[in-house]
């Protein structure tokens, strides 16, 4: 045995011991919920958040033996759920699922949301949206420039899902010297319906358009997230177009503020385990419909929320 190999063995043995120690330590301190966990879903039954939450709940029940009871507290883009959640016990038996916007732009844009970003413990994100500006292929617009030409020639009806999209549209109008008739619709499905029916010419899609784009029925002209969308590589991002915002939302799990680190970490780890397991139904769901597992937790998540708030404030101030 050379000195080098001996050193390797020693190091790995030490690592092994440390690892076993850590595992034992974590096993001893393993947090367990006192009683059933209420999982409040900030959106209506059948939507993307609802499907994820219910799949996760049944999987957690199977794997962890926890009783997880999902219920829909839908309304005002997750705000109603947030208001209800903030005053519930912070022992990990009351958690909620909504989107990052519920604790960012939408909260700030509301005159009286009834909660602040500090009222919550942020547990983990689950997956993200592939936000795109999408049109029907039959319109004949292949690129953003084609669309701009049409927009300059006459008015176009532009469907968004929140005031944030109206703000981004305003920036686009300023930048390109055009005018849109912006229509706010309730949710991605409504946008898809309006596009299909010809009620609007272009709309924001948060991933719901993926299948239609892949089949050639619709085209993503622009990517709303920081990166280009993998299946629409020719669509520039908003940032490339000179609108410096990433408007992709993520799904997020939160609890009332002041949750113990134990509870927070155990819950985050449990969610992560279920979502990243390739065989789980929820993994298949978020992969088919969204960007696949996108798990941010702990300090990174706190920073993500803070940054989102800052960006939203900037966006609101420049469009005012």
């Amino acid at each position: 045995m050379t000195l080098k190999t001996a050193k390797k063995v020693l190091v790995s043995a030490a690592l092994g011991v440390a690892a076993v120690g850590l595992m034992a330590g974590s096993a001893a301190a393993e947090w367990k919920p006192k009683g059933p966990i209420s999982l409040m879903i900030g959106f209506a039954a059948g939507g993307g958040t609802d499907t994820q939450a219910r799949l996760i709940a049944s999987e957690l029940q199977k794997r962890k033996g926890w009783k997880v009871i999902p219920s829909n507290v839908a309304g005002r883009g997750g705000a109603l759920m947030a208001r209800k959640l903030k005053s519930l016990p912070n022992d990990g038996t009351a958690i909620g699922m909504a989107v990052t916007e519920s604790f960012g732009y939408n909260m700030l844009a509301s005159k009286n949301p009834g909660y602040t970003a500090d009222d919550f413990t942020y547990i983990t994100t689950t997956t993200g949206s592939q936000m795109g500006l999408v049109v029907k292929a039959s319109k004949g617009w292949k690129t953003w420039d084609d669309f701009l030409k049409a927009a300059r020639a006459g008015t176009v009806k532009f469907g968004g899902m929140s005031q944030k999209h109206a703000d981004v549209n305003y920036l686009l109008e300023q930048k390109y010297g055009v005018k849109f008739n912006t229509v706010i619709l309730r949710g991605g499905r409504a946008v898809m319906n309006a596009l299909n029916a010809g009620d609007i010419d272009i709309g924001y899609g948060a991933g719901i358009q993926a299948k239609a784009v892949k089949s050639g029925d619709m085209i993503n002209l622009v990517s709303g997230v920081g990166k280009r969308i993998p299946y629409s590589p020719n669509a520039p991002t908003l940032i490339e177009l000179g609108i410096p915002y990433d408007i992709g939302a993520k799904f997020i799990v939160v609890g009332p503020k002041g949750m113990s680190a134990d509870a927070r970490n155990t819950l985050a780890a449990a969610f992560a385990e279920v979502i990243s397991d390739k065989n789980s139904e929820v993994n298949k769901f978020v992969t088919a419909r969204y960007t696949g597992p996108d798990l941010i937790s702990g300090k990174a998540l706190d920073d993500f929320i803070k940054n989102g708030l800052k960006e939203s404030k900037t966006l609101m101030s420049v469009t005012n």
Binding site: K34, G35, P36, K67, I69, T93
Partner: peptide, 10 residues
């Protein structure tokens, strides 16, 4: 026996 909240499914 704990709070009613903890026993709400017992």
């Amino acid at each position: 026996i704990g709070t009613y909240r903890q026993l709400r499914d017992t």
